[in-house]
Nucleic acid binder design. Structure first.
Lengths: 197, 197
DNA sequence: GCTGTATCGCAGGTCGACTTGCGTTAACCG
DNA sequence: CGGTTAACGCAAGTCGACCTGCGATACAGC
């Protein structure tokens, strides 16, 4: 073997800078999240796996929370498309179904959990991710109103919150399953109401 | 001043045992929660304020989470009564209003936050508090069905989740306000539906 | 009243998040 | 292509959650 003369090459410290380091670390985070879960994704672990020093991570992202949020925001940016089938019920069904699937994902659950853990003291107000998605989904309702499928005075935000809220509650609080039956029941209840007709 | 002969009385370590210690610690937790918030309620702080050693707290409650959950469960046990006015809309309105008020409380928010922070790895499945409350609220819907106010095939759980879900989502995710307008809009939407009539 | 045992005090330690100071080098810029 | 600087490596340390062993005592049962 043609080894180096010096018995200990002293492992040249890999200083991956700038964008290269950023991508390496973020990729490692996403991978660790799906294999080790949120609890297993510690800053020290990420640093080791990405071949970067822990300090460098803290200097760039400030907190573990920022780190993971950054990785997930990049990863889940394209998720939750807004369907446009021409029928409100169908649009809501599809949107809720993909929302349920996202929430069932390890990454989705992690994003959810981290969005909740905000300090109540300082108004940090982050986690715009979910608020944004719900905001975007309002067009589904608006299109339904324009088509005459829904009452003219329908509040789009209210409808979206009413159908999506239970999914979040189940994922965060009760742990109850998120199946298609629930989604369909929710949509129909919100569209038709509970009054006898 | 008639001080004791010994210059340092060496502060006899107060060993409050059993129920006395339990009440002292839990009372301190509730107090600290409303004055210092969740982040300020650390085990060391509680121990000092209650005149108890940190180790004793860990031995009895295992985790900080258990400690606070125990204190809040005891404190909020009687909260969220189920109204029975004879009219579904009124019952739902009152229930949701008190739920919103509870959620706006420092203690309510703390209970919510802690109910979310469950490990996804081990199926610890706690936080039955909120699930229990929603479960109990189902009778409101059942009574409405019996009275003929609601369709016979109405799913009580679905209705309760649809009206309560958005409140939790706002408290946990979006931080949007919980006013009476929202509550009324939610109840009416769920009862009447969004379809034009 | 005396003893036995579970409970508590206390010292010391692990682990993860986060910080600071200082030396070193990669990367951009003229 | 040499110089400057911001980015990185590294050592050391703080803080809070949580654990362990050991000695001491409050309270129960006799």
């Amino acid at each position: 073997m043609h080894g180096p003369q010096s018995p200990e090459p002293a492992v040249p410290p890999l200083r991956r800078r700038g964008e290269r380091m950023r991508r390496a670390v973020l990729g490692t985070v996403v991978e660790l999240l799906s294999t080790q879960g949120l609890a297993g994704t510690t800053v020290a672990t990420v640093a080791r796996a990405a071949g970067v020093h822990e300090t460098s991570i803290y200097r760039r992202w400030r907190t573990r929370e920022n780190l993971i949020l950054d990785a997930l925001a990049t990863e889940l940016d394209a998720a939750l498309p807004i369907p446009d089938t021409g029928v409100v019920r169908e649009d809501l069904l599809r949107f809720l179904t993909s929302l349920g699937r996202l929430i069932a994902t390890a990454q989705g659950r992690a994003l959810l959990r981290l969005s909740v853990e905000r300090d109540e003291t300082l108004e940090d107000r982050r986690g715009p991710y979910w608020s944004d998605r719900l905001e975007r989904a309002k067009v589904i309702v608006r299109r339904g109103v324009e088509r005459g499928e829904l009452a003219a005075d329908t509040d789009p935000g209210l409808v979206i919150e009413a159908v999506a809220g239970p999914l979040f509650v189940r994922a965060l609080l009760s742990g109850a399953p998120l199946d298609d039956t629930l989604v369909a029941g929710l949509v129909d209840l919100t569209l038709e109401g509970a009054r006898p007709r």
